[in-house]
Design a protein around this nucleic acid. Structure first.
Lengths: 103, 103
DNA sequence: CAGTCATATAACCAACAGGGCATACTGAGT
DNA sequence: ACTCAGTATGCCCTGTTGGTTATATGACTG
């Protein structure tokens, strides 16, 4: 499933979920509260994230604890890599340019 | 328009366009040929990219030369940053783990 | 200015995504 | 077994997206 992580990240709410799980493992209900979203909506996003391998579930009694799996994001990072130089170079240019002003 | 670049990158064809423009400035027709896509489809993607600030156009007679603007990708890179450590750490763990086997 | 090349836009369409509500499932406690 | 908490799923509805074909625009050419 190449490209999948890009699709998944297109959804703002899903990025927020990942951000929350980056801090720590959380049950669905907590995500629902923190995101101020409906429970089914969150469950649906979690399903998508799970199918993309971006989260793992662990069962704890009635609750399901979701944990981040960052590895699929590597693909995004690798795609982005060659661009990084470009936007950094552009920053350098700006800095150099600004440097010429106060002189 | 925060989050916009994420949406834009969700489309594989658009990522390919950016990859092509990363090499050099190109007219629409060239992109059409290289992507084996229809001209209107490509123009549409270019519009989306333009509105997201990811490309710039320059007119050269009848042709429009498109050039990459990587700067908006910075937002993606910054979002991704905290995750990078995680997937790299995970790789370290794996290596360390493998290291314990042969010993 | 008629014709043509390169590109953009319009109109339309099929597919899909994300939200809501209602409901099914699962494990614990009684 | 009944019930409740926590979560997943099904179904419906709506907005959006990406593609297609046909047409408009704009610039050069004879």
């Amino acid at each position: 499933m190449p490209g999948l992580p890009f699709d998944v990240l297109a959804e703002p709410q899903r990025r927020r979920i990942l951000d929350l799980l980056r801090e720590e493992e959380r049950p669905v209900g907590e995500l629902v509260a923190l995101l101020a979203a409906s429970q089914p909506a969150v469950s649906k996003h979690l399903r998508v994230l799970r199918e993309a391998g971006l989260v793992e579930v662990r069962t704890d009694a009635q609750r399901r604890l979701y944990r981040l799996r960052a590895e699929p994001l590597r693909e995004v990072g690798e795609w982005l890599e060659p661009y990084r130089r470009l936007w950094e170079r552009r920053l350098d240019d700006l800095e150099r340019h600004l440097g010429t002003i106060p002189g």
